[in-house]
C-alpha cells in the first residue's frame, strides 16, 4: 500500500484514498480485504456493516494508517481486523 492509492471494497460501494499508508497489514471493508479492482461483490460481514461516509477520514488506533472515503458504502472499515475510527477533524477557518 502507498499513499495516494485508491482501494475499493470487495463487498460494497465503498472506495477510499490512502492518505497515510502503513508498512504492512490488511485494510478491509465489510469484512473483506479491499482491492484495486472489484470483481463480483461478495457478502458484507454483519460485524462490519456500519457503513462509510463520503468525505470522512478514518484512522487506526495507532495512527499508522489514514484513509479518505471517496465513495460511501454499506460496509465499515478495519485494519488487520480492528475497526477504524472516524477521524476527529478540528475544522480550520476558511482561508481561501
Amino acid at each position: 500500500m502507498k499513499a495516494g492509492m485508491k482501494l475499493k471494497s470487495a463487498v460494497c460501494d465503498t472506495e477510499v484514498l490512502l492518505v497515510k499508508a502503513p508498512q504492512a497489514g490488511t485494510l478491509s471493508c465489510g469484512g473483506a480485504p479491499m482491492v484495486a479492482e472489484r470483481g463480483e461483490k461478495g457478502d458484507i460481514d454483519p460485524a462490519f456493516a456500519e457503513g462509510t461516509k463520503m468525505g470522512k477520514r478514518y484512522t487506526d488506533a495507532a495512527g499508522t494508517l489514514e484513509v479518505l472515503c471517496i465513495k460511501p458504502g454499506a460496509g465499515s472499515l478495519a485494519f488487520d481486523g480492528a475497526a477504524l475510527q472516524l477521524k476527529d477533524a478540528k475544522p480550520l477557518p476558511s482561508s481561501d
Binding site: 492518505v19 463520503m54 468525505g55 470522512k56 477520514r57 479518505l68 477533524a89 475544522p91 476558511s94 482561508s95
Partner: peptide, 8 residues
C-alpha cells in the same frame, strides 16, 4: 485534505 473538511 489537510485544510478543508469535505462538505463543511
Amino acid at each position: 485534505f489537510g485544510a478543508v473538511e469535505f462538505g463543511a
